[in-house]
């Protein structure tokens, strides 16, 4: 997924500004309960007590998200690499993976509750279940597409298995590992907020539920925007890391 491209000039910023203005104008026609104006949402952030609460919730959410993502990544990457290097194994696992992928992840919630409970273990489990298949699919596709040329060159120069892994396979798989990380983190963030809303209310999801129960729509908006910004920040962070570490790959693809 490539989201860059047309970021040139001031037009994107202008478009966002126009959108906010439109939101402000439209919200005049509705009560604040239904559609609060952006200024009301911003006003929230001026309250230091609220900000402290928001920060603590964000930290708690991020902690669970990263724990779940780390487990999923640690399991899915080796598994996907092995599967990608063996066409038969891949053929055996693919239909099962496709079937599991077709189950809406949120429908696994009752199961997660039975196995892992309503609290932090359950949240981590749901995050793992939601991000693991996506990481696996990307890793599998990447491992399958390592150019055989590279491996042949390594062999003909007499590389030992350890050298092969470090000098050939690892550098060749870094690009798709970054892709897997991007996809996995996006899914983990979705899993995080899903778990916090559908299991016992906690952290950011808990704050959302409390605000919703008080019909405080501005409070709900704050969290929606925050989760969205978190997603964008994580994506651009991984991309920046990728550009720094993989400058050779970027050059090659130009």
């Amino acid at each position: 997924m490539r989201l860059r491209g047309a970021s040139a000039g001031i037009w994107p910023a202008l478009s966002i500004l126009a959108g906010l203005l439109l939101w402000q104008l439209v919200s005049l026609g509705f009560s604040d309960f239904i559609l609060p104006p952006p200024t009301a949402v911003l006003q929230r952030l001026g309250d230091p007590a609220y900000l402290a609460e928001l920060g603590a919730a964000l930290a708690a959410s991020l902690g669970t998200m990263l724990a779940g993502f780390a487990i999923a990544f640690a399991v899915a990457v080796p598994l996907g690499t092995v599967m990608g290097r063996s066409p038969r194994l891949a053929a055996a696992v693919e239909p099962v993976l496709t079937a599991f992928y077709a189950i809406p992840p949120v429908a696994l919630v009752p199961f997660v509750v039975i196995w892992f409970g309503l609290f932090v273990e359950g949240r981590i489990a749901l995050i793992v279940l939601m991000s693991l298949p996506d990481i696996l699919v990307v890793t599998l596709a990447g491992a399958r597409d390592i150019p055989p040329r590279l491996i042949a060159v390594g062999r003909s120069f007499g590389a030992s298995p350890a050298q092969m892994l470090r000098r050939v396979l690892l550098p060749a798989s870094l690009p798709f590992l970054f892709a897997a990380m991007r996809v996995g983190l996006a899914r983990a963030i979705t899993g995080m907020i899903t778990a916090e809303l559908f299991l016992a209310a906690a952290a950011l999801g808990g704050m959302m539920k409390t605000s919703a129960e008080a019909f405080d729509n501005a409070g709900v908006f704050v969290i929606v925007v925050l989760v969205c910004l978190l997603g964008l920040a994580v994506q651009s962070g991984v991309r920046r890391l990728e550009r720094r570490m993989l400058h050779w790959h970027m050059e090659e693809n130009r």
Binding site: T190, M208, V220, V224, V227, Q235
Partner: peptide, 10 residues
């Protein structure tokens, strides 16, 4: 990047 789940309460 907006999670559908986050939109539910809204």
């Amino acid at each position: 990047v907006t999670s559908t789940a986050a939109l539910v309460p809204l």
